[in-house]
Every structure is written in C-alpha cells, then in structure tokens.
Write a protein that binds this DNA or RNA. Structure first.
Lengths: 111, 111
DNA sequence: GGGGTCTATCTTGTTTCGCAAGGTACCTGC
DNA sequence: GCAGGTACCTTGCGAAACAAGATAGACCCC
C-alpha cells in the first residue's frame, strides 16, 4: 500500500497554503475565487474552496490582511483581501523558516 | 501577532517526519531513541518521543518497516526498525512528490 | 414574475498528524 | 532493595486540509 501523491500532498500542504495565499497578495488585492483559481490550477496548492474560506478568516483575524467588499457586475459582491504591514512581516518570517526547514529535509532525504 | 518559528515548524512537519524516518533507515536498521536523537538534535525535525512511537507503529502497520527486538546490555530490549522494499518504494514516491511540491511553493513565494 | 444558471462566500463534519505529559518496564550499581 | 538511567508506549489535545452542501446575489429568457 504505497500512498498516492495526492494523499502525500494533502499532508504537505498543512501550514503552507496559508502563507502561499499571503504571497499571492503581495502583488495586490484579490478576492476568494480568484485566489482559489490561481493556487488550484497554476500550482497544486489548493484543492477546494472549503479550505480557502476558513483560512482567509484566520488571516483577517490575525490582522495579516484587511478586507473591502466590492460590488460585482456579474454576481454577488466580492470580498477583496489586501496585505497589511504585519502580513508582510509574517510572510518574511515564514519564508526564512521555510528555507531552513526544506534544507533540513533535503539533507535527511539525501543522507 | 507574528507567529514564532516554532509554531510554524510544528505545522510544516506534518506529513514529512514520517518519511524522514524512512530516509534515516536507508543506511541501516535503528531503534527508537536512536532515531529520536538523530532527527531531534541534528535537524529540527522532531521535538518529542510522543510523536515518534505512534509514527513507528504506523510504519510497521503499513508494511514499510519490519522490527526485531534485540536485548540491550544497558537497559530494556531495543526494537530495531528495518526498511522493507515497499518502504523504499514509498520513500521514492515521497521524494518525487516533495520535489514538485517545494518547487511549487518556491514559485509562489517568489512570484 | 418565475425558473435556470453563473458567480461568490461561508459552514459542517471528518480525518490526519504532531505534541506535551505521564506511565510502564528493564537493567545496573550502591 | 532502591535509585537512576535507558527504552518504549499511551492519552488528551489542538491545528489544519478536505469534501459536500448551504446561502444568496445578479443576469437572462420565456
């Protein structure tokens, strides 16, 4: 019973998707479904909106993003998410931690 | 409230430690505390034995390792874990998945 | 104005995993 | 015996991703 890549990926995403969303917002505000599409089709970092929305709530609650509701011509209003200074700082902390972690894993895998 | 690196790491380890243990066993059999020391002091991949032992049970249950109990001169008998062929195949699958995943994350973080 | 179809957000229940704290048992030396 | 080190295992907890479904606004066409 060798695990499928999908099963492996589900675990690997934990604690990473969150910060990838922050990284996406670095280039400017975006709304939920837009982020879901970017992270779900371009990369394999998100599989379901059921992951995204609770995650976005956490980001807002932590003060890493602010939100503004904007009416849309093609449907219900969109909630745009924008990175705060604290969000930027958090992202930098993560990036440094991520680098060290992946280096440790690589060393172990190659040992 | 910027998260501490420790809080970030706890999440990052999920789904990774398991395969790092397999990687450690590639160079030959080892017992629990030995693995805990290697992964806990050399790298920052393991913080507590409470993580390790349930994990080792899973590995055995999946058929990725076999165990042999060996009496020790300095304490209770040690349970040595040895990689199976299926464990080796699993490890290769993980390594490939891990490479693709980290590439995706890196791309997102740098975008 | 009623039905259908997008678009968009949010909620619920489940599973998996790492972690801290504590418990059990074996062996040696005083 | 009993103190201390070695080695293994268990329990209760919290965090995060996921699938599936719920809610609801805007548009179109009849």
């Amino acid at each position: 019973m060798i695990p499928t890549p999908d099963m492996v990926l589900t675990q690997l995403r934990k604690g990473v998707v969150e910060y990838c969303v922050l990284a996406c917002l670095r280039s400017g505000p975006a709304y939920g479904l837009e982020l879901a599409e970017r992270l779900g089709t371009d990369s394999s970092l998100l599989t379901s909106e059921g992951t995204l929305y609770p995650l976005l709530s956490r980001l807002r609650q932590q003060g890493w993003v602010t939100t503004t509701q904007v009416p849309s011509a093609v449907g219900p209003p969109r909630r745009y998410y924008e990175l705060t200074d604290e969000g930027r700082a958090t992202l930098e902390t993560f990036t440094a931690t991520w680098s060290r972690f992946t280096a440790d894993v690589r060393t172990t895998l190659e040992s």
